[in-house]
Simulated assay, not measured.
Amino acid sequence: MSVGGAVIKVARLRGALIGLAMFGMPTAPAFAEPVLRPDLADRVAGREDVTFADLVRLVVPGTAGNEAIDVREIGSELVEDLEPASGAAPRLAAVPVRSGGLDRMAVLLDFGSGRDVVGLAVLALFDVAGEPRLLDAANVASGQHTYFLEPARMAVGVDDDLLAVGSTHANSSQTYTTVPLVLVRNDQLELVDMISAFDERLCAYERTQRLDLRHGAQEPFSDVVATLTEVSTRSGDDCGEAPVPEARTRTITVTYRWDAGAHRYIPDSDAFDVLARENEGRF
């Protein structure tokens, strides 16, 4: 994949959506910097000669429009042309990050729905110390609206950060969101996992699933502990013969540990995969 030019390549989005309605994050120094929500004309990192429009032009020719975008899907090297659904400029969000101890800028370009796909949102990593350079880019959308979680950045390594992204789609009674956890390492975006869940509110009951992320000491990469809490409550209304789940609270916890041999994070269980299959049966 060539990321230095004006065009990048993207893989087809996943067909099935699984979601997470709300996210709870601890307030900690690792998440201290807020997400930036710049306009295209805003300056980058105090630079007088570089704007966010300059960065966006490295990803999409002409800044926006119905041009094909070439970028990989996160976690996949497959390539297929995708197009934004409209000519509107993307919604921007940005987070300063570290990679190899160097300051970088992560920018999320959310185009909303893509043509023939659920969504199109490009997470792009830039070196902005000198002449801006596009280091890596990937589509992280699985819903119609994609955003950085607040807070978005976790300092999991001595020199490297982890980004948390949410991508959401909703109808009248259900919300579907996935959370890509993306490690910024060696100036590349490396997928750690896609954490998924499903939220629904019906006549007889409501079920919510909320995520909490925490991490420990950096040696050289900290454990990342993801805990999803599911709360099911009954409304008490007479809603006919439809089955009603029991009122309960349950928690599902997965710890991601750095494997020095494999050079990646590995989960200690498949509990989130099991939950995703369970939720998919509720669609």
Rank of each mutant, 00 (worst) to 15 (best):
M1C: 08
V3K: 04
V3D: 05
K9F: 05
A11W: 02
A11V: 10
L17H: 05
L17W: 01
L20C: 12
A21K: 12
M25K: 12
T27V: 15
P29S: 07
V35L: 07
L36T: 04
L36Y: 01
L40W: 02
A41L: 07
A41R: 13
D42G: 08
R43Q: 11
A45R: 07
E48Y: 05
E48S: 15
F52A: 09
A53D: 07
D54K: 06
R57C: 01
R57P: 00
L58T: 03
N66G: 14
A68P: 13
I69A: 02
D70P: 03
D70A: 10
E73K: 10
S76K: 09
L78C: 01
L82F: 04
L82T: 09
E83P: 00
A88M: 10
A94W: 04
A94I: 10
P96L: 08
R98L: 14
R98V: 06
S99V: 08
L102S: 12
L102I: 02
D103R: 14
V107I: 09
F111G: 06
G112W: 02
G114S: 14
V118C: 05
L120P: 03
A121Y: 00
V122S: 03
A129P: 00
G130T: 11
P132I: 10
L135A: 07
D136V: 11
A141R: 05
A141S: 15
G143E: 04
H145A: 14
Y147E: 13
F148L: 11
L149D: 08
P151Q: 09
A155V: 12
A155I: 08
V156P: 01
G157A: 07
G157L: 07
D159R: 14
D159L: 14
D160S: 10
D160W: 04
D161W: 05
L162G: 02
A164Q: 06
V165I: 15
S167T: 15
T168F: 08
H169R: 14
N171H: 10
S173M: 10
T175K: 11
Y176T: 12
T177G: 15
T178Q: 13
P180A: 06
L181F: 06
V182C: 02
N186E: 13
N186T: 05
D187T: 04
E190L: 15
I195K: 05
I195W: 01
A204P: 06
R207Q: 13
Q209T: 14
D212F: 10
D212L: 15
H215Q: 13
G216T: 06
G216E: 03
E219A: 15
D223H: 11
V224H: 01
A226T: 08
T229G: 01
V231T: 15
S232L: 12
S232R: 13
S235H: 02
G236S: 03
G236K: 04
G236T: 02
D237G: 01
D238N: 09
C239I: 10
A242L: 11
A247Y: 00
A247D: 10
R248E: 14
T251Y: 00
T251C: 03
T253R: 13
Y256T: 11
A262Y: 02
P267G: 08
S269I: 11
D273G: 09
V274P: 00
A276M: 09
E280G: 11
G281W: 11
